[in-house]
Amino acid sequence: MSHTHDDEVHEHDLGLQHDLGTLRKRRLGRRGMIGLFGGLGVAAVAAGCGADPSGTATTADTSTGQPTPPAGGMGGDSGVSVADGEIPEETAGPYPGDGSNGPNLLTESGVVRSDITTSFGSASGVAAGIPLTVRFRVFDLTGEDASILAGAAVYAWHCDSAGNYSMYDGDAVNQNYLRGVQETGDDGWLEFTTIFPGCYAGRWPHVHFEVYESLDTATSASNKLRTSQLAFPQDVCEQVYATSGYAPSVANLAGISLESDMVFSDGYSLQMAKMTGSLADGFVATLSVPI
């Protein structure tokens, strides 16, 4: 199957899957009202998880207040509350690799892994780029108070430095790197070791992710709790794209903005990662995922 990123702009952002995700009914009551009106000025997730990891902090939008695990551990408390609202439901796009559009990687042995820079199974490629750690902390908002969601699973995937998605297009079509599943610990945290994604025409730099109840449901690609996307701050993108291997991303980033992006244009405060680190040491992107 041949894919282009022109397909993604339409299928990813305007197609049936996007419409269904947008119209999907949230739970009734307080959470439902917050979900409907959260984009009109609801406060972003509050900080309070402890000290940032060591390294040069680079945060484009400190108002997002995403939590960062304390140095030396993945524990800590968070200021996430029911009033902050749920992370938005978004389209998985045409390159999910979860069986909803073509190949299903989730049922393959080896998909549960933290380091997603390499391919596995019969593929052997390695994704090159600026090192990136992506940390998620998952919360359950079904009660009166937000609670940590332990034992949940997150499937994350994104394009490579050239803007290609493994299993689908370009030189990455025969690879399965930059895709993997991890389980949240008792503290709700999980993390992936990866590379900073490139920027392709028509989309702001992002990471896709799906949240499942457990590893069992994730690896059977069933009963998704939420599909969403993580956004990167502009200043970090510009730093990364000025390095070798990201040349096409410079022009592509200049041609798009968060306000014009077809996913993030309706609000991105709950999807904007907090960034720490540096080009020399690699970056860390941290995001709360309240569902």
Rank of each mutant, 00 (worst) to 15 (best):
T243C: 08
Y177W: 10
G93P: 03
V9K: 10
Y200R: 07
V126T: 15
G48K: 00
T184D: 02
R27A: 15
G180K: 00
P94L: 11
P248G: 04
A47I: 01
A156R: 03
V112D: 09
D19L: 15
V181F: 05
D7W: 14
T107A: 13
V42L: 11
L14A: 15
S269M: 12
D261F: 10
M272N: 00
G99P: 07
V284T: 12
T59H: 05
E259N: 14
H12Y: 14
E108N: 12
A92V: 15
S288I: 06
R24Q: 13
G198T: 02
T4P: 00
F209G: 01
A150E: 04
G129V: 09
M74K: 13
Y268Q: 08
D84Q: 11
E90D: 14
G55Q: 04
N176H: 08
R226N: 12
A146P: 02
G21A: 15
S2P: 13
E86Q: 13
S109E: 14
L36P: 01
R113Q: 08
G245T: 06
L106K: 02
L20K: 11
P290F: 01
V181R: 05
A201E: 14
Q182C: 10
E183W: 03
H208M: 01
A254M: 06
M262H: 15
G277S: 04
D261Y: 08
R26I: 09
A201V: 13
L28A: 13
T217F: 08
V207P: 03
F120M: 03
V138E: 01
G277I: 08
F232V: 09
G65L: 02
V45Y: 14
Q17R: 15
G202W: 01
L253P: 00
R113M: 10
A273D: 03
P233V: 01
I34C: 00
Q182A: 12
P197D: 06
F120C: 04
D13Y: 15
T194K: 03
S220K: 13
N101I: 12
C159M: 11
L178E: 06
V9I: 15
I130N: 08
Q17T: 14
E210A: 12
S214T: 09
L106S: 03
G72T: 05
A285Q: 01
S122P: 02
T184I: 00
G282I: 07
P94V: 10
P88W: 08
L141M: 04
S166F: 05
W204E: 04
D216Q: 12
A251I: 08
V250D: 04
R137S: 05
S147L: 02
G143W: 02
H5Y: 12
G202C: 06
D235W: 06
Y165G: 01
E238A: 09
L36E: 11
E213D: 15
P290V: 01
A60F: 08
V45P: 03
W157T: 09
Y212C: 06
A83F: 11
G21C: 13
V289W: 00
A60L: 05
R137W: 01
V284K: 05
L20I: 12
V154S: 00
F209D: 06
G79A: 12
A123M: 06
Y155A: 05
D266C: 12
A128R: 11
E259W: 11
G163E: 02
V45W: 04
P96R: 00
T91L: 06
E90L: 13
G73N: 08
I256H: 02
E183L: 07
R137N: 00
T68A: 13
T286I: 04
A242Y: 08
M272A: 07
